[in-house]
Amino acid sequence: MSEKHLQTGDALPPFGGKLRLFAMRFCPYAERSVLVLNAKNIPYDLVFINLDQKPEWIFNFSPRGAVPALEYEQGKGIFDSNVINVYLDEKYPEVPLQAADPLRRAQDKLIVENFSAAQSAYYTAAFNAQALQPSHLENYHKGLELLQKELETRGTKFLHGDQAGLVDYTLWPFLERFEALPLLGKSEYAIDKSKYVILLTYMESMKQVPAVKTYYLSADMHAKFTESRVKGDPNYNMLDSSAEVCCFRPRKKKE
């Protein structure tokens, strides 16, 4: 699969008769839908787009040009990862990813909602460090603590149970990226091994889930892309080139 991101002026690839997901390789929201498609073993095509120079046709599937967008029939699309993923789970029920119990489904949604402040803190720390406030760090670690407490309370390998489910695939893309923050000079955002034993065990288990393993990128990769974006020249196609991408040098923390 090519990692090339199509941009303004590029033609829409021919429709192949399968579901087609429009994404950006480093977007956590798009990754959510990739993981769900993988977990449900649904055949699909994946098209990456440049979010700074968007191809004109993406607006036919997503009015704001945002990803992910899912082409469920030729020329017809829906967008927003939450909308897409619930649709996929209900349309293709053979591998259910949501809890059967309505209360547990509600609780799973609350976990995701309560984690949103940690996600917001990540974005500020990674892409807008000059705007960081003490509350960002507090919200970040509060989110991690709440997630670890939930894992401890449930006592299962994954939040969904013995197998990863929609709640896990919804949270995972951000946890994957959190590990890049220390490489970006934000050591205070590290997920400490002594404090987050249960959470880190969970994260290692998630990395081995087949749906995740085939799409996972290392902290080094995420840090390298983040650096390019912060500099104003996001290297969308860094995985589709022969350039060396495995030796990212951590950014020195400013005193």
Rank of each mutant, 00 (worst) to 15 (best):
K4H: 14
D10S: 13
L12K: 14
P13I: 04
P13M: 07
F15T: 13
G16W: 06
L19D: 02
R20T: 06
F22W: 08
A23K: 06
A23P: 04
F26M: 09
L35P: 00
L35E: 00
L37K: 00
N38M: 03
K40G: 01
Y44T: 04
D45M: 09
L51Y: 08
K54W: 08
N60H: 14
S62V: 05
G65T: 01
A66C: 14
A69N: 04
Y72N: 07
Q74M: 14
G75F: 05
G77C: 09
G77M: 07
I78C: 13
F79I: 12
F79M: 13
D80H: 08
D80Y: 05
S81I: 03
N82A: 15
I84W: 03
V86R: 11
K91M: 10
P93L: 05
E94S: 13
V95S: 06
V95D: 07
L97K: 01
L97Y: 01
D101R: 12
R105W: 05
D108A: 12
D108G: 10
K109I: 12
L110C: 12
F115C: 04
A117I: 08
Q119L: 14
T124Y: 07
F127Y: 10
A129T: 09
L137I: 10
L137V: 10
Y140D: 01
L144I: 03
L151V: 03
K157Y: 03
L159M: 06
D162T: 11
L166M: 08
Y169F: 05
Y169L: 04
T170I: 06
L171I: 03
L171Q: 01
F174K: 05
F174A: 01
P182F: 01
I191V: 10
D192I: 12
K193R: 15
K193C: 15
S194Q: 15
K195V: 09
K195E: 13
V197I: 15
K207S: 15
Q208V: 12
Q208H: 15
V209C: 13
A211E: 00
K213M: 15
Y216N: 14
Y216C: 12
L217R: 08
L217A: 10
D220T: 11
D220K: 07
H222I: 01
K224V: 09
T226C: 03
T226G: 01
E227P: 05
R229G: 03
K231V: 11
G232D: 04
Y236P: 03
Y236C: 09
E244G: 11
E244W: 08
K252Y: 10
K253I: 07
K254I: 14
K254S: 15
